[in-house]
Write a protein that binds this DNA or RNA. Structure first.
Lengths: 147, 147
DNA sequence: CGCAAAATCACCCGAAAGTGTGACGACATC
DNA sequence: GATGTCGTCACACTTTCGGGTGATTTTGCG
């Protein structure tokens, strides 16, 4: 985690800068509470932003054991999704297929053409090894790709 | 992103706490620069921690046992079956549809003609209020007619 | 910038699914 | 014996699905 170190350095530099600016602008006008709140909010936002950007595009192989039934709002098994090479759009369409929508309805809901939905579903069936949409739904459910 | 909201609330609470403590301990002893640096470092660390935890483990697997759900090999809700006027044959075909079989495959498995399967499924869709087989599967599952 | 993956869309064509109507036999019930 | 339900099947017709091909645009990454 060299990123953490880099982050620490940047944070220190920013602290110095803030301490310098304090003498010039802020202290003379605002009370200390407001200043502290501003600094806190700024650094909190900065920290969040850094944390997000640092871990943005990482696969992060998650190994979790699912014993039986997963309570809660359900999350797709990312391992199998990436393992099968299923894209986010395809997974989205699989969910809508499982919800019983026709290609035309899916197209209307996603604001794309029906042909696009067909292309997506076609590639999806190929990746799932399904010949029909009902089969794709069955496979998707058993593979925990959809609830 | 309810997490963001939660974070905001925590941040506000911490700001209040810090403002309170300021009057009691810190201001009397330390200079403002040190205080600000501490606050900044604290919030920066908090921010980066939150940023990491928000992205790294979005599943945050809540593994709970659900013993009441899967009790036995599943039995269809007979009340709803008779309530909808669904016959045993239709329910059987609904199960095969949910298994991803085509009409022809269902016909082969039940030793009947494809047209028979069509009429059964047609009446089934009518009783379920479904327009497609995928929709029939969805309705059947939510109504506990099929596993 | 250039590449590769993903997303978008179009067209054709065949297969599957779904609708509607009609019909026939088995079986139970009144 | 008339009635009703259920399962079976046929045939014609429309709609939906799915495969195949090719193309363009968008986007993420090196």
């Amino acid at each position: 985690m060299g990123d953490i170190l880099l982050y620490g350095v940047c944070g220190g530099a920013l602290i110095v800068i803030l301490k310098l600016t304090e003498y010039r602008f802020l202290v003379v006008e605002h009370s200390v509470e407001i200043y502290v709140a501003l600094v806190a909010a700024l650094f909190a936002g900065l920290g969040i932003w850094l944390g997000l950007t640092l871990t943005k595009r990482k696969p992060t192989a998650i190994l979790q054991e699912v014993p039986a039934q997963t309570a809660g709002p359900f999350v797709a098994d990312e391992r199998r999704v990436s393992q099968l090479g299923i894209t986010a759009r395809e997974l989205e369409i699989l969910g809508l297929i499982a919800a019983g929508l026709s290609n035309r309805e899916i197209a209307g809901r996603l604001f794309v053409s029906e042909n696009t939905v067909k292309t997506h579903s076609s590639r999806l069936f190929d990746k799932l090894g399904a010949k029909r949409r009902t089969q794709a739904v069955q496979i998707g459910k058993s593979a925990r790709l959809i609830p």
